[in-house]
């Protein structure tokens, strides 16, 4: 009798969970971490951070640009750049086309310039909604052009990474984008340029192993997955289960790989501080006294 009762109770809860999931995405969203349901409008006000548990929802490039820059201060570069199919990879062009419609972006990275706390910056924002934010020729080229622009105009570069890594469908050309972007950053760095890397969920594979790890300052959003190899492959290779916090922003902080984990609500403030410190002339500033 007791068993029957429990069974029945279990059964009865199923439809209610399902019903909750059926609520249209556009009006409310359920936090994947604490399951709290929030109105999208409310979430938006809080930069898509769960007010109950602090979970940072992944956001698209357009939303990021909107919340990052001083109001109305930004413009986009190379918006019309699109991928070709260098390997003649089956179905690649169709997949790109459907992601273009889905994200309202032509590729997995948005680049442009704008002001943050009054400082001019060249900014790239990756969007995991487009081919999992993977880096192929266009992502590599847009980021390299952005760095070149910042170099010529002597302004800082800020890159928000969100990527599964190199894009498989462009094979070795994707791999070479890692070298191309890193080489551009080296030249920029040699000329005294400031580069701030912000790793968001997820920053993995070839993006993690190139520009994302090369910041003069490396910051990460709370809870972001950051690493080179995939968790499942590591578990299979070494034959042991990995800790829950493995490859999170907090794990990287503990292991000395990043400067700070910065909550989204504090990001503009932290960036403003770094930018303002760099706007001063370093040692030479003392000459004026």
């Amino acid at each position: 009798m007791k068993d029957f009762f429990i069974k029945k109770k279990k059964y009865a809860t199923v439809p209610s969970v399902k019903a909750r999931q059926d609520v249209p995405e556009g009006i409310v969203r359920k936090c994947p971490k604490c399951k709290k349901i929030m109105y999208v409008k409310e979430l938006q006000k809080h930069l898509f951070v769960c007010q109950s548990c602090g979970y940072h929802y992944p956001i698209g490039a357009h939303e990021r640009a909107e919340m990052l820059f001083d109001e109305g201060s930004y413009m986009e570069f190379d918006k019309d750049m699109i991928s070709l199919n260098p390997l003649q990879f089956p179905n690649y062009m169709n997949k790109l086309e459907s992601d273009r419609k889905k994200t309202n972006l032509n590729e997995a990275v948005w680049t442009g310039k704008g002001q943050i706390e009054g400082y001019d910056c060249a900014v790239a924002v990756m969007d995991k909604g487009f081919r999992m934010g993977s880096m192929g020729s266009v992502v590599g080229e847009k980021i390299t052009r952005l760095i070149d622009y910042a170099d010529k105009n002597s302004i800082p570069v800020i890159i928000f990474s969100a990527s599964g890594g190199a894009r498989m469908q462009e094979g070795v050309l994707s791999l070479m984008q890692m070298a191309k972007t890193s080489a551009a950053l080296k030249g920029f760095s040699e000329h005294g340029g400031l580069y701030i890397s912000i790793m968001t969920h997820p920053t993995t594979g070839g993006v993690s192993a190139s520009f994302a790890s090369l910041g003069d300052y490396n910051f990460a959003e709370p809870g972001a997955l950051i690493g080179f190899a995939g968790r499942r492959i590591i578990e299979q290779t070494i034959g042991e289960e990995l800790p829950d916090d493995f490859q999170t922003a907090e794990f990287l902080l503990k292991h000395g790989q990043i400067d700070q984990v910065v909550p989204r609500s504090e990001l503009r403030t932290v960036l403003g501080q770094v930018l303002s410190i760099h706007a001063e002339g370093g040692v030479s500033g003392w000459d004026r006294n």
């Binding site: 991928s83 070709l84 462009e170 070479m176 191309k180 551009a184």
Partner: peptide, 9 residues
């Protein structure tokens, strides 16, 4: 390396 890539407008 700067020249490696395949893209269009």
């Amino acid at each position: 390396y700067r020249a490696i890539g395949n893209y269009d407008r």
